[in-house]
Design a protein around this nucleic acid. Structure first.
Lengths: 229, 229
DNA sequence: GTCTATAAAAGGATAGAC
DNA sequence: GTCTATCCTTTTATAGAC
């Protein structure tokens, strides 16, 4: 567990405040990267600390020095990936105003980027691991939900609210509508990949899915209607 | 117990040809039931054969006699649950013709039953296990897909095709439309339960979700439109 | 701070009595 | 056919040299 306590009369190690056990950031990143690869490839139960140490090119003891144990290491890699989840979506300058373009264009862009994101192999593996261990690590499941699904819904809901106010779309309940929009994108392509069935979908498949979703969504929320969802 | 055997000259057990290893169906069901509980509660990696034997009230050797090993046992319980997946949906007499009622009623019924099905705790755990081990057991993932998602889509697509032909709905591509319908139902309620967040959804939540999905779906496929999805 | 070597425990699978 | 007892590998975690 690495504790400095016990005989600490007063500041035994004055240099570099924290870092009681290990501090080399290079080794730490090596371990983190290797652990990510192995954990996401084989799952929590299927991964041994030996495998991680070997993949990282360090000794097992070094892994234990940097992270307390298997649970903590798994938590660290899952949390890190949670933090990076939506990075690809922040590429476009994300200006809060001037969304640029008609709703169909905007929604298609959002859908396309979201679909690519959730279909990426690394993110699929991450989701698989979080779901699989959601009982053992409930706090990781919650961190994931808040880092991904919740944020994209909030962002889209804000946009939909604006469109409704401007009379461009009819969206009485922005958040449920946004949730439905993303649910539609987690369709057959997604489930099949999650189960590891068939090859990765072609760009054409993804574009077809995006078109279908946007079409249905817009049909339900055309301006002038008084829909609630 | 207590058998004199050993000295049996000829045809010690002429009765019951097969059954080289084990045959007691009661014990077998005990093991299967216990294994289902433990595997679905703790996952493949988190479950030990000792735990299964104890939960079943038999010795570990008996477990090995009935099923070859851990992998085979896991496969057996997953396959069995795959076969039972859609049983609740077959309750209504499932007459191939005369679906009875307007599309909104029919679709609402389908949606309600499907939502209850996928939100049931046992089915959630089953899905979690299949997804988690889809790398180690690809054939189980495929069996699941064919036992559940594929069948419900085919059934709904057939109905939609009929409605399209009768001019009640406008569904140019029944299967993609059916896939989208069920994707919409795997929405926020579903994801949150899959991640173990919050309590089980109330009936009111489910009905609200069903209403939203059916409303959006019907808006997109109202008769007279020439939608493709 | 990192490595080598080892302790301590758990888990999958099997042998042999009855 | 089922149980008890055991084998042996794997795995988590730690101790001690440098």
């Amino acid at each position: 567990m690495a504790r400095q306590a016990t005989a600490a009369g007063a500041a035994s190690k004055r240099s570099k405040a924290g870092a009681t056990a290990a501090s080399d950031p290079v080794k730490r990143d090596q371990i983190l990267a290797a652990a990510t690869r192995v954990f996401l490839a084989s799952g929590y139960g299927g991964t041994s600390m030996d495998a991680i140490a070997e993949a990282a090119g360090v000794s097992k003891q070094t892994v234990y020095s940097h992270f307390g144990g298997k649970d903590a290491l798994f938590g660290a890699i899952v949390r890190k990936k949670c933090g990076q989840l939506l990075e690809p979506l922040r590429m476009p300058p994300q200006t809060p105003r001037s969304p640029g373009g008609d709703p169909q264009t905007v929604l298609s862009g959002v859908a396309q980027r979201f679909l690519e994101l959730i279909l990426a192999a690394e993110n699929m593996a991450h989701y698989r691991a979080v779901v699989a261990e959601s009982r053992r690590f409930p706090e990781l499941a919650e961190a994931f939900y808040r880092s991904g699904p919740e944020i994209v819904v909030d962002n889209l809901a804000r946009y939909l609210k604006t469109m409704d106010r401007e009379g461009v779309l009819a969206v009485a309940e922005p958040k449920p509508a946004a949730r439905l929009f993303f649910a539609m994108l987690r369709g057959d392509l997604y489930i099949r990949r999650l189960l590891g069935l068939g090859p990765a979908p072609a760009q054409a498949d993804m574009r077809r899915a995006v078109r279908q979703v946007v079409r249905v969504f817009l049909a339900a929320h055309a301006a002038g209607k008084s829909q609630r969802g």
